[in-house]
């Protein structure tokens, strides 16, 4: 692991927002955990920020890691690109302990990034962020005709679907035939 630890830059501005909480309960230090994506870059994230993710929250709730243990055992999310995980971490830090606003204008505008972000957010079970992302996906086809929707959302036509289905059946048939032949060969 390359383990280029980042004290995530967006985590710093999020700190003052938690100041009143820590003032109310100064004796409880905030615990941190570490996550990394496909690029192995490790992100340090507070437990408060990670609460947005139902998946990670469930994982850490009963761990009771010390700082050293957490550092030594970062959570690997190999199915998430590094820049996408960075976006998710930034969002969690920005919205730590805050009520989420009805709109979020900081989401990526590029379609490829948005697609990866939706996949990641859905996997990490971050409900509010998923709602924002899905609103943005819905906005892509606002006021569009069925043909335009098919184009924008890369939806195969009925003919393409049928052809793909036939192909899949053909392949499945061939595989089944191959297996039968192999079984017959074994029996001989």
């Amino acid at each position: 692991m390359s383990s280029t630890e980042q004290g995530t830059s967006s985590a710093a501005p999020a700190e003052p927002t938690t100041a009143p909480e820590s003032a109310a309960a100064p004796e409880v230090p905030e615990s941190f955990y570490y996550v990394h994506g496909k690029d192995k870059v490790v992100h340090k994230v507070s437990a408060g920020a990670l609460q947005h993710s139902a998946l990670i929250h469930g994982m850490i709730s009963n761990l009771g890691y010390t700082e050293e243990q957490a550092k030594a055992n970062p959570f690997p999310f190999e199915n998430i690109d590094g820049d996408i995980l960075q976006m998710v971490v930034d969002w969690c830090n920005q919205h730590k302990g805050k009520p989420t606003p009805p709109e979020d204008t900081n989401l990526p505008k590029q379609k490829e990034k948005l697609f990866d972000l939706v996949l990641a957010v859905n996997y990490l079970e971050i409900k509010e962020l998923l709602t924002y992302c899905c609103k943005q996906v819905a906005m892509m086809v606002k006021g569009k005709s069925p043909e335009e929707i098919r184009e924008i959302w890369m939806i195969p036509t009925d003919a393409e679907d049928e052809a793909a289905e036939k192909e899949a059946k053909k392949r499945a048939g061939k595989e089944a035939a191959g297996e039968t032949a192999a079984a017959a060969g074994d029996a001989k």
Partner: peptide, 12 residues
């Protein structure tokens, strides 16, 4: 803009 919508998870 291109977005493979049907490749998203069913929840999304």
């Amino acid at each position: 803009p291109r977005f493979p919508f049907l490749k998203l998870h069913y929840v999304a």
